[in-house]
Computed example of a mutant assay.
Amino acid sequence: MRATRIARAALAVVLVAGAAACTSTTADPVPPPSSAPVQHPAETLTALLQQALPNVAGKTFTSSIVTFPPNARAAPHRHGQAFVYAYVLEGSIRSQVDDKQAETFRQGQNWIEHPGAHHVLTENDSATEPAKLLVVFVSTTGEPLKVDDSHP
């Protein structure tokens, strides 16, 4: 009989302790999933050469290296009335211009952008490796080479 009372008391302690643990009000509630947009690192541009074209009045030749860290994405943008040539030096870049289908360009591949084109997507295709582009602009002298879309 004594053993039965001890077993019942032990069971009661376990049940009370378990119930208290399940209904504890001191634990922090689990936060809801974040609805904030994912932030991607930005690209960096390093100018190599900028030279007025001697035989084309009002036009400038500019070459640059654009580096994309892993997961980097450029804001949608335009290059004004510049003609743009991009060559992938390292890694792979996903690119979409105007309403054309997005394409992935790998090391050694290239593309062009016509004056006035809207570059809606430019991103490093890798989450672990950087990517680099050689970008050449033929632009109107004095105009900015890149203008990001305005945010509403």
Rank of each mutant, 00 (worst) to 15 (best):
34 S>P: 07
152 P>E: 12
79 H>W: 02
33 P>L: 11
105 F>S: 11
119 H>L: 11
71 N>Q: 05
136 V>A: 01
99 D>N: 15
100 K>F: 12
143 E>Y: 03
89 L>N: 05
64 S>E: 06
53 L>T: 03
101 Q>N: 11
20 A>I: 10
8 R>Q: 12
151 H>M: 01
139 S>I: 07
97 V>R: 10
39 Q>W: 01
135 V>E: 11
136 V>I: 15
65 I>C: 06
122 T>M: 14
131 A>Y: 04
151 H>R: 02
128 T>M: 00
24 S>F: 03
105 F>T: 10
107 Q>C: 02
24 S>V: 04
25 T>K: 13
96 Q>K: 15
90 E>W: 04
66 V>C: 02
62 T>D: 01
94 R>V: 14
149 D>K: 01
101 Q>M: 12
5 R>P: 02
33 P>G: 04
147 V>H: 03
98 D>C: 14
12 A>T: 11
29 P>E: 02
90 E>N: 13
109 Q>W: 03
138 V>M: 15
94 R>T: 15
65 I>K: 06
58 G>W: 09
102 A>G: 11
150 S>H: 02
116 G>S: 09
103 E>I: 12
23 T>F: 12
92 S>L: 10
11 L>W: 01
21 A>S: 14
141 T>C: 08
100 K>H: 14
81 Q>F: 00
38 V>S: 00
67 T>K: 13
9 A>F: 05
98 D>K: 13
148 D>G: 00
23 T>P: 01
68 F>M: 08
85 Y>V: 14
135 V>G: 08
46 T>K: 08
70 P>L: 04
18 G>Q: 08
126 S>T: 03
74 A>C: 07
39 Q>M: 03
96 Q>P: 09
97 V>K: 06
118 H>D: 14
105 F>P: 07
76 P>M: 06
95 S>Q: 12
116 G>T: 08
4 T>W: 04
61 F>N: 04
13 V>L: 15
51 Q>C: 00
97 V>G: 08
80 G>K: 04
75 A>I: 06
65 I>P: 04
121 L>W: 08
3 A>Q: 14
84 V>M: 05
19 A>E: 07
21 A>P: 01
